[in-house]
């Protein structure tokens, strides 16, 4: 296991959001987290990154990380692409990518050139302010920026939200490429079709806890779970 989460509880002020969440992530897999809005998927991501008040055990590559500040968690090799696509709007596209580089980068790791080869559109706009990119381009930039740090595990929150179908396909391909290069992926996703197509395993959350765990095929067979916790 690359990541083990045991009995994770998290709060926003007095609201108890996560209630005893436990799960594992295996090396190189894509784990999709499904569920409706407000059930705690994004909070799980934030808790893993040390960004909310929480209790419970989080172990990454055998080391406890639940007491570490966010930047140290990131330096250990957990990358995060938050749901609101936080590009640094006044920095250029290239500068955004540089911000993702970490000193302990690997020789065979991701580089800004990779980003520009995969997405020529980003190369064309390398010198322009990132705030002027379209939503889809910003999403790709945010993902590529996090990849510059060569994380061993990447948490991606709602990457396809609000994107045109062509962009959704590009994001999907990028996630597959990330996993192909050996990085584990935790994917928080609203679109069932996307998640089922690329995930190796699926977690379904409801009311702050995990209500289903299995393969995409398992979930396809469980109409009750889909009806009660996913479909709107």
């Amino acid at each position: 296991m690359i990541l083990e989460v045991k009995d994770l509880n998290a709060w926003y002020g007095k609201s108890h959001i996560l209630r005893g969440v436990s799960f594992n992530v295996k090396p190189g897999e894509i784990l999709a987290m499904l569920g409706r809005n407000g059930v705690g998927r994004s909070t799980t991501v934030k808790a893993l990154m040390g960004d909310v008040e929480k209790t419970g055990e989080i172990t990454f590559e055998g080391n406890r990380i639940d007491n570490l500040p966010t930047h140290e968690i990131a330096r250990l090799g957990i990358g995060c692409v938050p749901e609101d696509r936080q590009v640094f709007p006044t920095l250029t596209v290239h500068q955004n990518l540089i911000m993702g580089l970490q000193s302990q980068g690997r020789d065979d790791g991701w580089t800004p050139d990779d980003a520009f080869q995969l997405f020529p559109r980003l190369a064309e706009r390398a010198g322009t302010e990132a705030g002027s990119l379209s939503g889809g381009e910003q999403q790709l930039l945010t993902m590529m920026r996090t990849l510059m740090g060569n994380p061993k595990l990447i948490l991606i929150d709602e990457p396809t939200e609000g994107l045109a179908p062509r962009m959704v396909a590009q994001v999907k391909d990028l996630i597959l490429e990330i996993a192909r290069r050996g990085t584990s992926v935790v994917l928080v996703e609203q679109k069932l079709t996307v998640a089922l197509k690329i995930a190796n395993r699926v977690l379904v959350m409801g009311h702050g806890s995990i209500v289903f765990e299995g393969t995409p095929a398992d979930l396809a067979a469980r109409e009750d779970v889909r009806r009660d916790y996913i479909e709107v």
Partner: peptide
């Protein structure tokens, strides 16, 4: 400088900057 980039980023997006491994505090 890269330090300047980190400062500029932390000015507006402190949490995201930390998530990229920069010691924002």
């Amino acid at each position: 400088t890269r330090v300047g980039l980190v400062v500029q980023s932390a000015l507006t997006h402190a949490r995201m900057t930390a998530m990229l491994g920069h010691n924002v505090p």
